[in-house]
Structure formats: structure tokens, C-alpha cells
Write a protein that binds this DNA or RNA. Structure first.
Lengths: 140, 140
DNA sequence: CCTTAGCTGTTATTTAGTTGCATTTACCCT
DNA sequence: AGGGTAAATGCAACTAAATAACAGCTAAGG
């Protein structure tokens, strides 16, 4: 991904251009899968832990990343497609591979079914996590 | 819930009968919602933190509880309906209230749709977390 | 009873995430 | 351009969450 595009992406989300943010964003774009804090910490030893935490938070806050629910303890983040500072909408699925542990965003829209929720419950949105075995692991 | 029933429930899942396990299980049955480690720690100050952790793990391992994915950092557990040591199957939904933060198991089966997963991906199961406002919070 | 596998409490350690503060930097405005 | 300012960074200390090691105790089966 081109430098100028990354820069524009940060600007679009009202974020200042800094080395750390550029590198982290580029890494997300490159990897095309959900990354944990640990992934970043391993990759970017030149940046302070705290800075990486703050980078993740600012990205999440400004609609560049979304936090993906996971029972694994530490949080995992994935790139948003068309979110901005005002509106977050993540109507896609997440696929978690039980073999290699990686999480990916799958471009299958979550169609909200006519849920028969108990009386007086109101749904705003929905997280769907599909567990299984991914492409790469299936091939081995 | 009767003492003898709780006891039988533990036995059915091949777990020894201990004070801690009886109390924790009773609490889950009584509350009828998902509980976090912190909930237990607050409730049962007579038991050591480590023991409570171990109780949760053993319950999970033996099919008495299932871990519910959540982005909130610490894990949340809900009672299983018909699981045992061998087979876990959690085809029900989870409802997380954005207002009070509690998570409940909703007895609506997750009907696995004809997902068009990317090629060579294989699904084993699915977690569905419905976010919204619950009964009690809606009434206030 | 008595034995023993397995549960418990204690302490210590690892891992995850946050806070405060001094310094530096991006970027807006003439 | 270049200067002022709000924001980002690095560092250090701190809180919280989870796990590990080990010695003593107890449930359950004979």
C-alpha cells in the first residue's frame, strides 16, 4: 500500500500523521487479518508499549479498527471497512481458526434475522464469530 | 435448587463434590445469567481467588460452563444446558446488555445459515452475541 | 477406616493494561 | 517559512488479571 494512501486514510479519520501510526496501519493493511496487541509489540520493538496501546485505542476510537470479541484473554483488532469517527457499523463476520488461532474478517454480511427475542429486549447489533479451520490450515 | 440435585449435577460431570463447587454452581443456577470471575470473587470471599479460577476451569473443562466471548477483557461464563465431558454444543445465543453490562443466555437456537464461507474454510460452530438493551434496563 | 488422587490455600511470578509527567512533534495560523 | 499550541511519545511506576509451584488437606472408593 502506498504511503500517500495510508496518510490519507489517517487524515480521513481525523488522526495526526506519526511514524508509529503509519507503520501500524501499514501492518494491518499488509497482514489482512486481525492482530493482537502482542502481535504489534513483537513486530514494533522500536515503539514503546504504551504508544502501541494508545495507537490501538485511537484507531478504534476514530473508526479505523474494531475490537473483535474473543475469549482468549487479550483483545484482537481488525481493520474497519467504511467506518468513520461518527458511525461504526460492523455487519460482517469474523472467522477464528481453532488450529492456528488467527482471526480474520470475512466479507459475509450478517443478516439480522427475525429474532424472537424475549419480551422487552431490544437489539442494536450483533457479533458473529465463526469457529473452524481456515484455508491455510486445511491445506496441511 | 436442591442440594441433592446440585450434587448429582457435579457427579454427572465427573467432578468431586466440594464446598466451593457446590456454592459456585448453586450461584450460577440461582442467578440465571452469565457471571464473570469478578462476580464470583465478590460473592465468595471465603474462597481463595486461585480456587475460584480453578473451579471455573474445571467446570468449563467438564461441560458445566461455557466461556462466552466478550471484548471486555475478562471472561464471562454461562451455564451449559446439556453438555457433558465429551460433547460441548452451544447452539444458543448470548445477549449482552449495553446498559447494565450483564450477559444472559437466550434460549433461541442459532440456526446455522447457508454460509458462503471462502473456499476451503470449514466451520465447526458459531458464537452469536446480540448486543442491545435488556428487559430490566428497558423498564427504567 | 485407610489410601490416594485430586482439591485447596499460600506465596510468588508472569502477563495485561493504565496513569502521570516531562519532552518532543505535527500541523494550524498568520 | 516559522512560531505557538494541542497532541503524541517515551519513561517509570502502578494496578489488575491470570498462572505456577508446592505443601497440606479432603472426598470417594475400596
Amino acid at each position: 500500500m502506498k504511503y500517500s494512501e495510508l496518510k490519507q486514510s489517517l487524515k480521513n479519520h481525523k488522526l495526526r500523521i506519526t511514524d508509529c501510526r503509519m507503520d501500524v496501519l501499514a501492518y494491518f493493511k499488509e497482514m489482512q487479518r486481525a492482530l493482537s496487541f502482542k502481535d504489534l509489540e513483537d513486530k514494533f520493538q522500536e515503539y514503546d508499549r504504551v504508544t502501541l496501546y494508545r495507537t490501538l485505542h485511537s484507531f478504534e476510537e476514530n473508526g479505523l479498527l474494531h475490537k473483535i470479541p474473543g475469549d482468549s484473554g487479550s483483545a484482537v483488532y481488525g481493520l474497519c471497512n467504511d467506518c468513520d469517527v461518527e458511525s461504526h457499523h460492523h455487519n460482517h463476520m469474523h472467522f477464528k481458526c481453532t488450529s492456528c488461532g488467527t482471526t480474520e474478517c470475512i466479507d459475509v454480511p450478517v443478516e439480522i434475522p427475525a429474532l424472537s427475542l424475549p419480551k422487552n429486549y431490544k437489539m442494536t447489533d450483533m457479533d458473529v464469530i465463526v469457529n473452524g479451520v481456515c484455508n491455510t490450515c486445511n491445506s496441511n
